[in-house]
Amino acid sequence: MIEFKNVSFEYENGKPVVQELSFQIEKGESVGLIGANGAGKSTVMKLLLGLVSGDGEILIDGMPMSRNNLADIRKKLGFVLQDSDDQMFMPTVYEDLIFGPVNYGMSREEADRKADEVLTKLNLTDLKHRHNHKLSGGEKKMAAIAVILAMEPETVLMDEPTASLDPYNRRIVINTIKDLKQTKIITSHDLDMIMDTCSRVILLSNGRIAADGPAEEILRDKALLEANHLELPLGIAKR
């Protein structure tokens, strides 16, 4: 379970980015974190991953986040970055796949097995020994997801997972996300994708929660979305 208790954060210029944020995410939930640019979505992710620290308390499975247990907490969380180039920093997909597991203490044989397992599950076995710089955008995104799944995280966090993907690859990524059994927290402006993959939505506005509830309910609320500089998902608007 992930819990934010009155979490606030501001950068050095003193402008608050996140203000007294409180919410809970239960194990197995799929939560879409939405909001206009600058609403605080990325900062919430960074706070959750311990990349920045603010006021208030963040608990992961009851463990309060602190410097001392950061490694244990990060082991539980797998973060798929928006730009796969930043995530795939090793020469080949295989080396990226084993990077995390081996760092977290898995033996190389075990990591190898895990890598094969994940690639097979995602139907990506042909990517295993490919060089990262030769992958297409869609392949790179799928490989980035595989890299995170190989770490066996309890929660998968994704930042704009469908950004810059063509419709075909976007659909593949959406189907993959839907099949994931882990707790999922997804930030995106692609509200159709959020509708497809998340059961709950947290709408952020100026660092505060503007709405928190079932995706079906929030993503159909035209007035609420427009008041927060968003639009109805295309799939709903067309109906």
Binding site: L51, A71, L77, L81, D86, I98, F99, V102, N103
Partner: peptide, 20 residues
């Protein structure tokens, strides 16, 4: 970009050693 890349390494357990 460098910051983002380094954070990505940290999030996957990089601690300055070369286990992998």
């Amino acid at each position: 970009r460098a910051q983002s890349l380094y954070e990505s390494m940290l999030l996957r357990g990089y601690d300055g050693r070369f286990h992998y």
